[in-house]
Design a protein around this nucleic acid. Structure first.
Lengths: 247, 247
DNA sequence: CGCTAACTTGAACGCCATCAATGCTTGTGG
DNA sequence: CCACAAGCATTGATGGCGTTCAAGTTAGCG
């Protein structure tokens, strides 16, 4: 079960600005909220902690709160009659639980140990109504979510498994780069293989073969199942550009 | 070229509310904007008309305006090194041109003859800053866009062509139902086959076979390439639920 | 009415799904 | 600390489906 605690930290939302071009002072992904906004949210929010694989909310539940990730990775997926489909992996500074209609459309579960702020929906809407600044911040964040979902669709539209995997790895590297600010030589993949497979619209078997293919071509190397190093970024980029199938 | 005109109509945004459950007075998709908001936007907007296949903006262009569809259908696509990928088909009451970062990420072109409001970005941001109501409306609309993009990903995650097509047809029917309010017995598909194929991550050949398959099974019938009738809704729904592949 | 582009259809190939069996790793209890 | 079990990941073999390429057909437009 999730345990409730107190913490000095504050809710935070990270995003790139949709309308302001990148500049020295506006880093690619920056903290959107002002100290005042963060304080306001902190007043109505509670901190929750979830262990790996615990569900944060379930598809169909009455939507009574939105969540803001402090640490850890959250998996969002939808259950159809024929199985689960992973929609996104969320990271610290992300917001979730808000794209529903009275009820949650998706299920959210902890991919790792996770700490989140839970913001009750009435309080959230009240703050939105009275704080124009915050409104804009959420708009910016939603634009980012939308871009990410569109990118996911682009990945899924690719026909070759290796292409999808290459695009996924580049995305993960990019996320880690912008989150930590520095370029890590090794990509950390907290989720397991079948989660990646689901996100990429592949079977675990096909994903495994795609990994093997990239490794055998010396494009990447796998220290273990959660740590991948890019050996040949240019080759990876070529693969991500979806070469035609039958020469 | 697009021709600029004057019109009595006003900008309008249609969406379902993410937080308020459906109720008699809140129809599934309703007009979000108040008369005052529409007037405010009308003051800074200009009406443009585009003929079929004309581009409204191009990927990479400096983003200087957002658009609101009055009539017609708009195709949004992204060009990668290996071709074009259709991201969405937009309808009257939709908003586009806002999920970018200083430059448009996608290209928008008229799928049919199209009438749109063009709202310059500075004016748009000014109105957002001073009008909290409008902020919330945009948040609601963005939530809808996000749900739609996630649905698109769900479609693309399906492995069988017939499943993707069935989900697409159900989506189109649903769109027409909520747009016009009444349930039309015939679905109108304004876009051409290769556009649908691109949206579904298929080749035109595969899409054609999927259509043929649904027709031969008496699930649908095609009056012509743009008018499809659903003969067996239950069978269509079964197909959309992605039956397992190998018996 | 003829032209052009889009769509359909056909045949062969290749990739991925499927199923099944093995190997690895994680966690649990002796 | 090791033995065992259970789940996840990999690997192999097979077949189906979609891609590809090409040819034929239809539809849309001047």
């Amino acid at each position: 079960m999730a345990t409730e605690t107190k913490d000095l930290a504050r809710p935070a939302i990270h995003a790139v600005h949709p309308w302001v071009p990148g500049s020295p002072e506006t880093r690619p992904r920056h903290q959107l909220l002002s100290d005042d906004e963060r304080a306001q949210l902190a007043k109505v929010a509670s901190i929750l902690r979830f262990n790996k694989d615990e569900q944060i909310f379930v598809q169909g539940d009455k939507a009574d709160a939105v969540f803001n990730i402090v640490s850890g990775v959250v998996t969002v997926y939808r259950t159809l009659k024929n199985g689960d489909y992973i929609i996104s992996f969320l990271h610290p500074g992300d917001l979730f639980g808000l794209s529903e209609e009275g009820h949650y459309l998706n299920t959210a579960k902890a991919a790792t140990s996770v700490t989140v702020y839970k913001i009750p929906l009435p309080a959230f809407r009240r703050i939105l109504d009275t704080n124009a600044e915050l409104d804009v911040d959420f708009i910016i964040k939603l634009c980012e979510d939308l871009r990410e979902a569109q990118h996911h669709a682009l990945v899924l539209a690719q026909k070759r498994a290796a292409t999808r995997l290459a695009m996924f790895l580049e995305l993960q590297e990019h996320l880690q780069m912008t989150d930590s600010g520095k370029t890590a030589s090794e990509i950390y993949l907290p989720m397991d293989r079948s989660s990646i497979a689901s996100y990429l619209g592949l079977t675990p078997a096909a994903l495994s073969r795609a990994f093997r293919m990239l490794v055998s071509r010396q494009v990447i190397s796998c220290r273990d199942r959660h740590h991948v190093k890019i050996l040949d970024r240019e080759a990876l980029n070529r693969l991500a550009d979806a070469p035609s199938l039958g020469g």
